[in-house]
């Protein structure tokens, strides 16, 4: 097919009679003015929309978010510091309580010991009093026993003398028995 007939059939210099492109549509001069015109309009509209509305808005949102994050981190650090302080206070209170409890225990122990000492002393005194009393009782018993021995010895001596057929002089016998017992 010759290119001359072709050109004659074509709708324009870029489109053939079948509605297909002749060569590269990109190089078709007929459309350039139209494309450039609408492109410039498009770019101006996009530029205005972006620079007037979209970009300042996104910038403010990003700044706001950055601010929020910074604030939140600061608040978190503040809370962390408070928690540490509370922990320290708790530890301090715990240590104080331990010291105090030890002091109370010591005081109680001392008190009980003092009471115990008093009771022990009292008991000791009572025991020694009881012992002294008992000793006195024993001494009395021993003394009375010796007396009894003397009486029994005199009686026995008088009885023996009487049996042997003598007339017993009780005074003499008593003296003799006392002598013997002493000796």
């Amino acid at each position: 097919m010759a290119s001359e007939t072709h050109a004659a059939e074509a709708v324009s210099s870029c489109v053939d009679s079948h509605g297909s492109a002749l060569g590269m549509p990109q190089l078709c001069g007929d459309w350039i003015g139209n494309q450039v015109f609408w492109l410039v309009i498009t770019l101006v509209v996009i530029f205005l929309v972006l620079s007037r509305i979209a970009l300042p808005r996104i910038a403010s949102v990003l700044a706001e978010r950055q601010g929020t994050i910074t604030n939140d981190i600061a608040a978190a650090e503040d809370l962390k510091r408070k928690a540490l302080e509370a922990e320290a206070a708790y530890e301090q209170a715990l240590a104080d309580a331990r010291v105090q409890s030890q002091a109370i225990a010591q005081a109680t122990r001392d008190e009980i010991k003092a009471e115990l000492d008093v009771a022990l002393a009292k008991a000791d005194a009572e025991i020694s009093a009881k012992a002294a009393e008992s000793e006195k009782a024993i001494a009395d018993i021993r003394a009375s026993a010796l007396e009894n021995v003397e009486v029994v010895a005199k009686d026995t001596a008088e009885a023996i003398v009487a049996v042997l057929g003598g007339k017993a002089d009780s005074a003499k016998i008593a003296a003799a028995v006392s002598n013997r017992l002493k000796g």
Partner: peptide
Amino acid sequence: VGMFTITNSALWM
């Protein structure tokens, strides 16, 4: 296609 014709190119812009 004139200077101000609304074309498929303009539509997609």
